[in-house]
Write a protein that binds this DNA or RNA. Structure first.
Length: 849
DNA sequence: GACCTGCTGCGGAATG
């Protein structure tokens, strides 16, 4: 294969590949050359392309080169830590450890490969605390914990390379920030450290690379590489098209109308993954499939994040061994273990993003060279447009980026305590180290001083509480020169350390940035654990009530100490729990693609099967109202029994529309007092008022600022939404990450109500006595950016400001407005079934005259 | 004959 012809190790590696009948991947040579040159980099490719072994060869070959005499290997002791391998998942850590051990064992290299995650026994951890294996596979959280060891510098003293697997998964979250800070710590101690990231393809690979290797500092030039896996990966995206679009719903999300087609698709393959967007939807579909195909009991399974880990492991194992015909899952199966037998992937409902759809497609054909295929199943008619848009975007490589959080001070505060535990730190050195990360490259002196002061004194409000004075500034004994009454020349300042053992223990228990929801465990009265559901769902149940969870019908018995005890119910009717998850708006990349597809349709171009299928409904939209082009904004005015409606269609995703609805309502009401009720979805927003709405006046320029202006945006949004309450909720996460609120020991958690109560208390105390507290302003910033997507909203308003505004006065609602109307009915509807009502409305609107 | 949105992920160790 001529990969490494100048190396004596070549035949060894060649044989090893040949034994597995693997051909080398084209990017292996490139990766190896870059590694050998001392460089760092990011290797991006779809899953199933063999990235793992491509980067693993680097450090292994380097060792072989340094130890040419193979006969001596058996007499050499395993070296201390050479390679650190980070993964975002415990399950992946276990799999990777096994994968890396194989070539080490086969080649006879004297290396130890071990993992370290929370589930590793404490005796193994204790041994590792003294000396790390030659390769350590671990998570960002466990790496932080290692850095908090007093002997941390020693433990990492021989490290050659760090490899970050699935970097795209960490990049956009505070877990990524935590990783950035730890990598900066490693780089300062090992200046020649090579950092390699493995990632799926992203829209902002340059940012991903910068965040991985850190920003260049003066005097330390760096050599970085962005390597593309250029094995072409064929990905097929198709749809199950409803036979009669006229009888297909215009709204709704469950999609059970497609059940027969889905069952036929499952029957076609050997082993099938059915992805849904929510846990409730996964449970519903699992029941529906089982009801339709009772013979499949035992051959189909359910997998989502609220199921007990043991249940999930059983399912994953069944998939790997090819024992399961079908698994209905949420994002919990997006990532991780390789299920080679899977040959069919279905996606129920819109994937909401291009990257997400590609990720799910990649769960089938998970081998180099194999074709990946995903079949989308629409739950309402307009979703067909989204599928066609997603396919075009994927082919064009228009994939979403992931933006790293900027300066999250809660993560910095936590990291400072970690550093203080790990042998301590000094002001200037630590500041330079933190600023070498992408996340904190623009950290101001004031922000740094505030964060440092916060861990030393607890800030203005907490100075009299010793438990919040976590870090002490220790002055070296010989630093003070008594003769000169001054500190010695060149003294680097005090060393910041943790001295209190309780502070140390509490900190180690709280390392990490993942803050969960308020949930209660679900367990059989006689012991078997099923998983967890949101507390608010359980709190509404009476003993004897039934609900469906983990694919079973359960009877609620009682609630004790955050555990809901249940028994099997005799009847199989019951409510399916709904979780308070986060909301997934249509991604920016997909929103752009959808607008382009609509423009094509407006111009009479229907290239894809999906678009041809919705053509009759789009024709109704065009006849009754209008199909907006990309440079237009459609506004519909309709009067119904409910009152006066305005519908806006920016196609920017529901989070942006939520902010816009509040903003528009606020600005319209400033012209004349008027009250609105609002509804939003991914396509648009609806304002409803009992009184006529002065739209024409506002569009004509009356009122300040104009409706679509970005001027005063950040004043007008908080005024129109309950931003203060949102910040209070956001602060719960910040308080926990910054170490203000302890979560208790694993396994015996502090009750979440207490957590919420005390984070509320901190919020109030800071607001009153420490208004300059930077964690408070961070909470407000995070609400604007994450809950309201403020930058996306500003861009959207700019775009709309340039757009031609098309106002249509309608006698009855258009197809596009339909889902927004249904959304409102959902809340009001009691006796009549929603589906019936939707059907009647469709008929009333003349679709089936 | 009821159902009618909202994902994922981690984590301790000293003492008897």
């Amino acid at each position: 294969m001529n990969l490494f012809t100048d190396l004596h190790a070549q035949p060894l590696i060649e044989d090893w590949f040949a034994q597995r009948r693997w051909s080398p991947f084209p990017f292996q040579q490139e990766t190896w050359a870059a590694y050998r040159g001392g460089g760092s980099g990011l290797l991006h490719a779809p899953t199933g392309q063999g990235k793992t072994y491509a980067v693993w060869l680097g450090p292994v070959m380097q060792w072989i080169e340094a130890h040419p005499n193979r006969d001596t290997w058996a007499t050499i002791d395993a070296p201390p830590l050479q390679v650190l391998w980070l993964t975002p998942l415990r399950a992946l850590a276990a799999d990777t450890t096994a994968a890396l051990q194989a070539p080490i064992r086969d080649l006879g290299i004297p290396w130890t490969v071990e993992r370290r995650t929370g589930d590793v026994s404490s005796s193994v951890k204790a041994r590792q605390n003294k000396r790390l294996p030659s390769t350590l596979v671990t998570t960002p959280e466990s790496l932080s914990l290692l850095i908090s060891r007093p002997n941390a510098e020693e433990l990492f003293g021989d490290l050659q390379a760090v490899i970050v697997d699935e970097w795209h998964e960490l990049l956009g979250s505070k877990r990524g920030t935590q990783t950035e800070l730890c990598l900066a710590w490693l780089r300062r101690r090992r200046p020649n450290l090579r950092t390699w990231g493995l990632s799926a393809t992203l829209g902002n690979l340059d940012v991903a690379l910068d965040a991985l290797v850190g920003v260049p500092t003066p005097g330390t030039p760096r050599q970085t590489h962005l390597i593309t896996g250029h094995t072409p990966k064929e990905i097929v995206i198709d749809s199950l098209i409803p036979a009669e679009i006229e009888r297909f719903p215009w709204a709704g999300h469950l999609g059970l109308k497609m059940l027969p087609a889905v069952i036929a698709a499952i029957e076609e393959g050997e082993s099938c993954l059915v992805f849904t967007n929510t846990r409730n939807q996964a449970e519903t579909w699992y029941q529906a499939i089982l009801d339709a195909m009772p013979d499949w009991a035992g051959l189909i399974a359910l997998h989502h994040g609220s199921l007990d880990p043991q249940v999930r492991e059983w399912v994953e194992d069944g998939l790997r061994r090819g024992l399961l015909r079908c698994v209905v899952a949420t994002s919990s199966l997006d990532l991780g273990v390789d299920f080679s037998p899977v040959d069919r992937v279905l996606q129920i409902g819109s994937p909401k993003g291009v990257a997400r759809l590609l990720q799910r497609a990649g769960r089938s054909g998970h081998r180099p060279g194999a074709v990946s295929r995903v079949t989308c199943v629409p739950t309402h008619a307009f979703e067909l447009i989204e599928v066609a848009a997603a396919r075009t975007a994927a082919q064009a490589g228009a994939i979403e980026g992931r933006t790293p959080p900027q300066k999250p001070l809660d993560v910095l505060v936590q990291h400072l305590v970690t550093l203080a535990l790990g042998g301590g730190f000094r002001y200037e050195e630590a500041l330079a180290e933190v600023r070498s990360t992408y996340a904190f490259r623009n950290l101001t002196d004031a922000e740094w001083d505030w964060a440092l002061g916060f861990v030393v004194t607890g800030g203005d409000a907490l100075t009299s509480y010793p438990e919040y004075q976590r870090v002490v500034a220790k002055v070296d004994e010989d630093a003070y020169d008594d003769a000169n009454h001054d500190y010695a020349q060149g003294w680097a300042g005090p060393r910041y350390m943790v001295e209190d053992r309780k502070v140390a223990q509490r900190h180690r228990l709280n390392v990490g940035t993942i803050v969960g929801e308020v949930t209660v465990q679900v367990q059989y009265v006689n012991g078997g654990k099923l998983g967890s559901v949101d507390e608010y769902f359980i709190s509404r149940l009476q003993p004897g009530d039934r609900f469906i969870f983990a694919g079973r019908t359960l009877e609620f018995v009682n609630l004790r100490e955050m555990t809901a005890y249940v028994r099997k119910a005799k009847s199989n009717r019951g409510a399916i729990p709904r979780w308070m998850g986060s909301r997934m708006p249509l991604s920016t990349a997909l929103a752009v693609a959808v607008r382009a597809k609509l423009e094509a349709a407006a111009n009479g171009i229907f290239e894809e099967d999906e678009l041809r299928a919705v053509a009759p409904i789009l024709a109704m939209q065009a006849a009754g109202s209008y199909i907006p082009r990309q440079d237009e904004l459609l506004i519909e005015e309709v009067e119904t029994d409910e009152g006066h409606h305005l519908f806006f269609y920016p196609f920017e995703g529901r989070l942006v529309h939520e902010g816009m609805a509040a903003l528009f309502a606020y600005r319209l009401s400033r012209l004349r007092p008027i009250t609105f009720s609002m509804a939003v979805n991914d396509y648009g927003l609806n304002l409803l008022s009992p009184d006529p709405i002065p739209l024409a006046e506002v569009l004509a320029g009356k009122g300040t600022p104009p409706l679509f202006s970005t001027e005063n945006l950040f004043e007008d949004i908080p005024a129109s939404l309950n931003a203060a309450e949102m910040a209070r909720r956001q602060f719960r996460e910040i308080a926990q990450i910054a170490g203000l609120v302890a979560t208790g020991l694993p396994g015996q958690r502090v009750k979440s109500k207490h957590l919420q109560a005390s984070s509320n208390l901190f919020f109030d105390v800071f607001s009153r006595y420490d208004a300059e507290n930077m964690l408070l302003s961070q909470a407000h910033r995070e609400v604007l950016e994450e809950q309201l997507e403020q930058s996306r909203m500003a861009q959207a308003l700019d775009r709309i400001g340039q757009a031609r505004i098309v106002v249509m006065q309608l006698r009855r609602p258009s197809p596009l407005s339909f889902p927004l109307l249904v959304d409102r009915m959902r809340e009001e509807l009691s006796s009549e079934s929603l589906a019936d009502r939707v059907r009647k409305m469709q008929i009333a609107m003349g679709l089936e005259a």
